[in-house]
Structure formats: structure tokens, C-alpha cells
């Protein structure tokens, strides 16, 4: 989670990721923020994120991003 927080802060440090639960729905993270995030996550966690994972549910909060990363690592 710490590593994920570092990545998120590097993308936009003005967001309170611990509290925010609607990063996508409230457009705090735009499409390009998500693409950069995906690229960083793939490098940092050695996972492949496919286009099918691009749903608001997977990116709305730090927790949901973390859960997606864990799921992809286990697969």
C-alpha cells in the first residue's frame, strides 16, 4: 500500500487518497492520469493491466486500486 501511495502522490499530490472514494466518478483522476497510473503500477508490481480493467470500480479509491493489483498479482 505504501508503494501505491507513493505512485499516486507522484501523479497528483493534491488529492487526499486515504479519504477519497470517488477518484474517477468525481473526475479527480482523468483518463490520462489513469493511463499514467496503469503504466506505473505495471512497472512497480510486475503485472499486466488490460483494457478490460479500466472501470471506475477499479480506480475509484486507493483501496480499490490496491485490491485490483493484488488480484492481478495472484492470477
Amino acid at each position: 500500500m505504501e508503494k501505491l501511495m507513493e505512485i499516486l502522490m507522484e501523479i497528483d499530490d493534491s488529492i487526499d487518497y486515504e479519504k477519497e472514494k470517488a477518484l474517477i466518478d468525481d473526475r479527480l483522476l482523468d483518463s490520462f492520469g489513469v493511463i499514467t497510473l496503469v503504466s506505473e503500477l505495471e512497472d512497480a508490481f510486475d503485472i499486466d493491466i488490460e483494457a478490460s480493467e479500466m472501470t471506475p470500480d477499479n480506480f475509484n479509491s486507493a483501496e480499490s486500486i490496491y485490491n485490483m493489483v493484488k488480484r492481478l498479482q495472484e492470477n
Binding site: I35, E42, D43
Partner: peptide, 20 residues
């Protein structure tokens, strides 16, 4: 367009490589 073109293109090999 976003779901079936924009994201698949954004997450394709060449675009990811360019990003890095």
C-alpha cells in the same frame, strides 16, 4: 469509443512503451 478504442489503444504496447 472510450471503452473499445480509447482505452485499448492507450494500453497497447506502443503507447505504453512511449509512455515509459
Amino acid at each position: 469509443f472510450k471503452t473499445y478504442i480509447f482505452y485499448p489503444v492507450s494500453m497497447s504496447g506502443p503507447v505504453k512503451k512511449w509512455n515509459q
